[in-house]
Design a protein around this nucleic acid. Sequence first.
DNA 1: TTGACGCATGACAGCGCTGTCATGCATGAT
DNA 2: ATCATGCATGACAGCGCTGTCATGCGTCAA
Lengths: 340, 340
Amino acid sequence: MEKTRKVTLADVAEIANVSPITVSRALRNPDKVSPDARSRIAYAISRLGYVPDPAARALASGRTDIVGVIIPSVSNNVFADVMRGIYDGLQDSPLGVQLGTTRYVPATEEQLIRVFLSQRPAGLIVAGHDQSAGAKTLLENAECPVVQIMEVGPPPIDLAIGLSHYRAAYAGAQHLLDMGYRAPAFLGAQMDPRSQRRLAGFRDCLAAAGMGGEDPVVTTPEPSSVTLGGQLFADLMGARPQTDAVLCNNDDLALGVLFEAQRRNIRVPGQMGICGFNDHEMMSAAEPPLTSVGTDRFEMGRASIQQIRDRLAGQGHPRGHAIDLGFRLVPRASTARGKA
Amino acid sequence: MEKTRKVTLADVAEIANVSPITVSRALRNPDKVSPDARSRIAYAISRLGYVPDPAARALASGRTDIVGVIIPSVSNNVFADVMRGIYDGLQDSPLGVQLGTTRYVPATEEQLIRVFLSQRPAGLIVAGHDQSAGAKTLLENAECPVVQIMEVGPPPIDLAIGLSHYRAAYAGAQHLLDMGYRAPAFLGAQMDPRSQRRLAGFRDCLAAAGMGGEDPVVTTPEPSSVTLGGQLFADLMGARPQTDAVLCNNDDLALGVLFEAQRRNIRVPGQMGICGFNDHEMMSAAEPPLTSVGTDRFEMGRASIQQIRDRLAGQGHPRGHAIDLGFRLVPRASTARGKA
DNA sequence: TTGACGCATGACAGCGCTGTCATGCATGAT
DNA sequence: ATCATGCATGACAGCGCTGTCATGCGTCAA
């Protein structure tokens, strides 16, 4: 009962009556091999159940078909949508994904980038543009496409796909003011750099409206959740009872606010306006439906892979190109004060 | 400006004044190298910024440090929790993850298993136990630990970690009956094999209670969502108005039911009991708080990695071992009829 | 007919690392 | 003093594949 030896290119070549190199070519550049040889090779491959060894290929060619994806955390459901987009974009491509999580620690991110780059990936996708100086240098010198997702703003290292979180939150805050709310507050969890910029957008909008005096903001570094939304809202109402609207850093916070408002018999939108962020599917299904600032997380993932595929095909955008996917304010009943 | 050549083991060896093989050993079995040599090597590595080439290592040793994870879809938020557990379990280990999605297509799953196995992974984690015959054969002959997660039931191929979805749903249905509901229904989306077994548990519970006549079930193959929960509930109430409770295949469906009930002024739990499945964090935060059959997705992921790590360390459970993580019924206001 | 050219194919070496076996040296028992 | 033992280290070959260059053959213009 000895171990079945691995099926190699050479085995296929022997059956197909060609040299190993021709089999290799048939796999990668079929048009450089005669149709006759190609069909014999195809037969041999299926008969033997041959699967190429990616390690050997990587070692010999100095490249892999792996795209490295570096995100802060898999718990954050924003990234779940992004990953969905990534896997969608991967359809019908030979590429695979290797995922790394930084846990919001810059040193971990830098180390992860170093490790991923040492594998000569086909591309690298990193979240945000707040990498450490060392990480930035590594990415600048990378020999593969690098896509910074989630956010656009400063000139990208290579490519960037995202939106301005500052502008999106500004628009959310402006919407609350436009609907007649006079004492809006900001609730934030998981205050990563993008959340910080959302907060800045909120603050600047209020300041522009001449409401810059106090700072009606309740935040926590804890990960966002529905439960936390309720708690933050309770804290807020304790500290600032006159609040008549909340801009939430995240949709699940907004949902938690809605439930807590129901518990306290606070009418939404009459006494309290609620606006979320991201426009997750559940927002339109809630009762009342919840206003949100919509972002296209799926497209961020899908497009980032597409950029990498385009680049590998010798096309695609040049270095320095940023794609702003924008945002869309989706007003719903939760901020329609008149209807209260 | 020529490309900086890759830093190799040999470069480190030269600086440290030892042979390449000793550096290799220092990296993998530090205790087999003298402390003196070890410290010289450590210095050389940090000075050169050396990172081992995993492809070369894989080719030479015939093993990789990659754990293959094969799940149906990344959109399903159940798997998001599992992935979180997996990454948690990976902490302080040299292992990495390669994720593949089957999109619920058995042939894709088999192909994915074949490809992953060809990379000689450190372990393989697959969702469920409904693999095709071909896939099963591949897994049985795999030379690495194989963990089937999500479900326990039939004897595992190697190891299994999960729960009985049949029993969990049976318990949920029984709870509805125990609380005095007399016309419970089942709502299901994304009817994968686990959902089918939950449905079977629901049906058998009703049959055991002498209510097996009709079949109050509304399902759809579409992915689960809050919106869909509302729609399925609307369909259900149209077709079977006497329904007084619903067992939902998934928590987001249950949330959708709650909102739809609110829209229709149906009192929960008085006129309608609602029970979800998985006990996602939001269930306790809802108003009223929603009953659910809790499962430990995080632990499934964490423990599956731990099993693989134990095996690699020469310990761990023997082949054929299954770990039933069970479930816990979490009764909340949404099924507390008396309080209505 | 001849030579230049393009196409399909092949030979060779080597990617960076590790498994296996061999070697040199200090130690302690005889 | 001699030899077996154990430890730290090293030499060698090769994992499976691909980059580079070379080869053989048929085709076409002159």
